[in-house]
Amino acid sequence: MKVGLFGANGRMGRVLIDALDQNENTVLSVATVRDDSPWVGMNVGELAGIGKKDVNCSAISSLSENDADVMIDFTLPVTLESNLKWCVDTKTPVVIGTTGLSETQLGLLDAAAQHIPIVFAANYSVGVNLMLSLVRQAASVLGHSADIEITEAHHRFKQDAPSGTAMAIGEAIADELGRDLKTCAVYGREGKEPERDQGTIGFATVRAGDIVGEHTALFADIGERLEITHKASSRLTFAKGAVHAAQWLHGKTPGLYSMVDVLNLKLNVS
């Protein structure tokens, strides 16, 4: 199966090159960068540090209809609209891992999914998606009495906060408890405040060094607490999940899918 990459020179783009090279059932057919990028023409294997391969980075304007069976996009939110438009125009399925999307950009995903199959997830790790199931189970048992806090840590270069994964964890918990995360989330505490409202879900964010990704959901009651934690030590975990999603997506009907669909996870345990 031919898989193409948007943003091959990004941190995830380089790891995806490696993941596709390791997968026996996929071939990297095209790897795009900005038209004015100094990486245009560079060999993708040398870019990813895995030795010379058969594909060079190409300008995104040179991308053509038959270059890929599925595209993968882990670029920035600003490029989402143009990348989606190309996929819709060429009827090319796409796996999207871009986080920090606005409500308007999420609407673009919904609109595009009327025409092509799309997998969109905040995190492509199998462990994180299993964690979404576990936090639902914990929320159904403890959520009406425990205080709930979500902490996350990432590398210094990550721009959106809280992370998309932290927000997905919060959404899963809020949904299980019948709450609206938009109204019950607390994103920062400072100074003297009233006693904590048990109905809120707190978020704390760390940005430091080269932390790949750590997430903890804390359920703290009087006398006991439960912590559910996932720690990633390599971006290759996410890349392999995205490649798996691309293989799953090939041949699907138009629609907006998630890793819940890809992994056939049952998240509603109530």
Rank of each mutant, 00 (worst) to 15 (best):
78 V>S: 14
186 V>M: 08
162 P>F: 15
34 R>N: 06
143 G>M: 05
205 T>N: 11
152 E>I: 04
67 D>L: 03
81 E>A: 13
267 L>M: 10
142 L>V: 15
6 F>Q: 02
26 T>H: 01
52 K>A: 13
53 K>Q: 10
136 R>W: 03
15 V>H: 00
128 V>M: 14
235 R>N: 14
116 I>S: 08
205 T>I: 14
213 G>L: 01
90 T>M: 13
6 F>G: 00
256 L>F: 09
195 E>Y: 15
3 V>A: 00
23 N>H: 14
85 K>M: 05
132 L>H: 06
13 G>V: 00
21 D>I: 01
48 A>S: 08
109 L>Y: 07
209 G>W: 10
199 G>W: 13
28 L>D: 01
195 E>Q: 13
224 E>Q: 13
229 T>V: 10
218 L>V: 12
88 V>S: 09
176 E>S: 10
208 A>K: 08
258 S>F: 08
244 H>S: 06
185 A>Y: 02
3 V>N: 01
210 D>E: 14
37 S>Q: 06
27 V>G: 01
229 T>C: 10
17 I>A: 05
22 Q>E: 09
168 A>M: 06
222 I>S: 15
93 P>W: 00
142 L>K: 10
170 G>D: 05
129 N>K: 01
166 A>K: 09
165 T>W: 10
205 T>S: 14
92 T>N: 07
7 G>E: 00
49 G>S: 11
135 V>D: 03
255 G>H: 04
107 G>R: 06
270 S>T: 13
259 M>E: 08
29 S>A: 08
95 V>R: 00
86 W>Q: 01
10 G>H: 00
201 I>N: 05
260 V>K: 12
237 T>P: 00
171 E>K: 13
51 G>S: 07
224 E>I: 13
186 V>A: 02
46 E>L: 14
228 I>P: 01
258 S>C: 06
190 E>I: 07
18 D>M: 02
62 S>L: 12
29 S>P: 01
243 V>K: 00
212 V>K: 03
99 T>C: 14
197 D>I: 15
108 L>H: 02
251 G>I: 01
21 D>G: 02
14 R>L: 09
156 R>T: 12
152 E>R: 04
61 S>H: 05
127 G>D: 15
117 P>Q: 06
158 K>T: 04
30 V>D: 00
239 A>C: 13
168 A>N: 12
166 A>Q: 03
155 H>F: 15
96 I>M: 09
39 W>I: 07
192 K>L: 14
39 W>Q: 13
105 Q>G: 07
251 G>C: 09
131 M>H: 05
235 R>Q: 15
114 Q>N: 12
168 A>K: 12
105 Q>P: 05
42 M>T: 07
164 G>M: 07
175 D>L: 10
266 K>E: 15
253 T>P: 01
26 T>V: 08
81 E>S: 06
120 F>C: 07
78 V>E: 15
4 G>Y: 00
107 G>E: 02
221 D>S: 12
259 M>D: 03
187 Y>R: 08
159 Q>A: 11
227 E>D: 07
177 L>D: 05
200 T>A: 15
118 I>E: 03
56 N>K: 11
138 A>Y: 06
243 V>G: 00
52 K>L: 12
66 N>C: 11
42 M>D: 10
175 D>Y: 13
224 E>R: 11
81 E>W: 05
267 L>H: 07
11 R>M: 09
35 D>C: 08
68 A>S: 10
227 E>T: 03
221 D>H: 14
147 D>R: 14
2 K>V: 04
53 K>M: 10
119 V>F: 02
182 K>A: 12
9 N>D: 02
